[in-house]
């Protein structure tokens, strides 16, 4: 019997700093890995340190690399920060339910990302911008702490100029040299050209941002069940065995991390749930 808890040994192919604490690295997929869907995650393992759930931030069509963008804040992620190719680490996956891209076909795709919440949404951009005819419009609204912490900025600007991506970013605070927006992501919704009735929204970021974005989108007329969010809890096993990542009746690791907002709203609105 195949053991879903036994990692594969994989080799790091590249490592790149994104901002002070955030970095992106690629590993060679294990032989039997198959493919992943945008929004899914892998469990990465470092001997002696443990495992960490990391969303996959690369192109789902790329079968030669598995890309992860990580913020160095825990034991495992800090240790990953110190590794360089050809380091070998453990990997199992992919886990979870991804973004409902099919539901957005023929409609407007609106992505809202906060901070490193852009990582699990980038696969959606790879996929959607490779077949833009499937969507009326693809929009990315991005919130970040400061201009220096905007991820993948060169690639996003390239997608904006060459691939038809409507892209707006705002930061919490900036020096006077910054030419872009300063403010909150919810205000970007008004600045962007979107047709709320046609919109399928995918939102990822801190939980409080999800709540505020969902509220603003609904005020504008986006249907509640067309708002999808990716949630975070401590996903320790990926298989529903360990119980850590539960939110109400859901295991985030296998029923999520992506949910239609109405399904999780009552639980997100309950303090300490």
């Amino acid at each position: 019997m195949k053991d879903p808890l036994l990692p594969h040994l994989v080799e790091m192919q590249s490592w790149q700093q994104e901002s002070e604490l955030v970095f992106t690295f690629q590993v060679a997929p294990p032989e039997e890995y198959g493919s992943f869907r945008a929004g899914q995650f892998n469990m990465l393992y470092l001997p002696g340190m443990g495992e960490s759930a990391i969303s996959i931030s690369g192109d789902p069509a790329d079968r030669n690399h598995l890309t992860h963008t990580v913020r160095a804040v825990g034991n495992v992620t800090r240790a990953l920060h110190g590794l360089r190719p050809p380091a070998r680490i453990g990997l199992r996956g992919p886990f979870g339910r991804g973004w409902p891209l099919a539901a957005a076909e023929g409609r407007e795709l609106l992505l809202m990302a906060g901070g490193i919440g852009l990582a699990p949404l980038r696969p959606v951009l790879f996929q959607a911008l490779a077949a833009p005819e499937r969507y009326q419009r693809v929009t990315l609204l991005l919130g970040a702490r400061s201009p220096e912490e905007i991820l993948y900025s060169e690639q996003l600007l390239r997608w904006k100029s060459d691939a038809g991506l409507q892209f707006l970013a705002t930061v919490d605070v900036a020096s006077a040299a910054w030419r872009g927006d300063v403010g909150v992501i919810t205000d970007l919704v008004q600045r962007a050209a979107i047709n709320p009735q046609q919109t399928v929204a995918m939102v990822c970021g801190p939980e409080i941002m999800l709540r505020f974005c969902a509220r603003r989108l609904r005020e504008l007329g986006v249907a509640s069940d067309a708002i999808h969010v990716s949630l975070e809890r401590h996903m320790q096993c990926g298989t529903g065995f360990c119980g850590h990542c539960q939110l109400g009746p859901y295991f985030l690791c296998k029923d999520g991390p992506v949910f239609a907002y109405p399904a999780v709203e009552p639980y997100l609105m309950t303090q300490e749930f």
Binding site: S52, R71, A72, V73, T77, I116, P120, C204, M209
Partner: peptide, 11 residues
Amino acid sequence: VLDVYGRANRS
């Protein structure tokens, strides 16, 4: 003020 992105999410 909450500095929401400063806090880790999906580490």
